[in-house]
Simulated assay, not measured.
Amino acid sequence: MAKDRKPDAGRTGGGASRSGSGARPAGASRATGRGRTRPPTQVVTHQRPWGLIAAAVAVVVFAAAAITYAVVQVRQADAQQVDAIDEIAGIESFDYAAGQEHVTTPVEYDQSPPVGGPHDGVWADCTGTVYDVDVRHENAVHSMEHGAVWIAYDPEAVSGGDVERLSELVDGVSGRLLSPYVGLDSAVSLQSWNHQLKVDSADDPRIEQFADFLTFNSEVEGAYPEVGASCENPDFIANPLVAGDPSEQVGPTDAPTTPTPAAEGSSAPSTQ
Rank of each mutant, 00 (worst) to 15 (best):
S189D: 09
C126T: 09
V173P: 02
E168Y: 12
S159M: 03
E168S: 15
S186I: 07
V141T: 09
V133G: 01
K198Q: 13
V135Y: 00
V170D: 03
S189R: 08
H146R: 09
D204N: 13
V133N: 01
V133L: 02
D185H: 07
S189G: 09
V158M: 05
T127D: 12
S174W: 03
S201P: 14
G161P: 03
I151R: 07
D185Q: 12
H146N: 11
S189P: 03
E156M: 05
L166M: 08
E138A: 12
V130P: 00
D154P: 07
G183W: 02
Y153Q: 01
S159G: 08
D185V: 05
P155Q: 03
V158H: 05
S179W: 02
D132Y: 04
V199F: 11
E168T: 14
V135E: 00
T127H: 04
W150I: 08
G161I: 07
I151P: 10
D203N: 15
S159L: 03
E138Q: 11
H142K: 13
D134K: 05
A140V: 15
G175F: 03
G161S: 15
G160H: 08
D162I: 04
S167L: 07
K198A: 14
Q196I: 03
A202F: 02
R165W: 06
V141D: 00
D200N: 15
V135C: 00
H137A: 15
M144N: 09
L184R: 01
G183Q: 01
V149M: 02
S179E: 03
S186F: 04
R165L: 11
S143K: 08
T127C: 06
Y131D: 12
W150Q: 07
T129P: 05
D154Q: 06
E145C: 10
A202E: 03
V199W: 09
A124W: 07
D125K: 07
G161W: 05
L184Q: 00
W123Y: 06
L166E: 07
P180R: 03
E168H: 14
S186V: 09
D171P: 08
K198H: 11
H146L: 06
S167K: 08
L197K: 01
Y131A: 12
Y153G: 00
D125L: 07
Q196E: 06
D125W: 09
G147E: 09
Y153C: 01
P155S: 02
G160I: 10
A140L: 10
G147Y: 10
V141F: 04
G175R: 02
E164R: 12
D185G: 10
Y131S: 12
Y131I: 13
T127N: 12
V182G: 00
S189V: 14
D162N: 07
D134I: 06
S174F: 03
D204R: 12
R165S: 14
R165T: 14
L197P: 01
P180A: 02
L166G: 07
V130H: 00
S192A: 15
E145S: 15
E145T: 11
R136Y: 10
L184W: 01
V135S: 01
N139S: 13
V141N: 01
H137W: 14
D185M: 10
L184P: 01
A187S: 13
V158F: 05
E156R: 08
D125Q: 13
V170M: 05
D171Q: 14
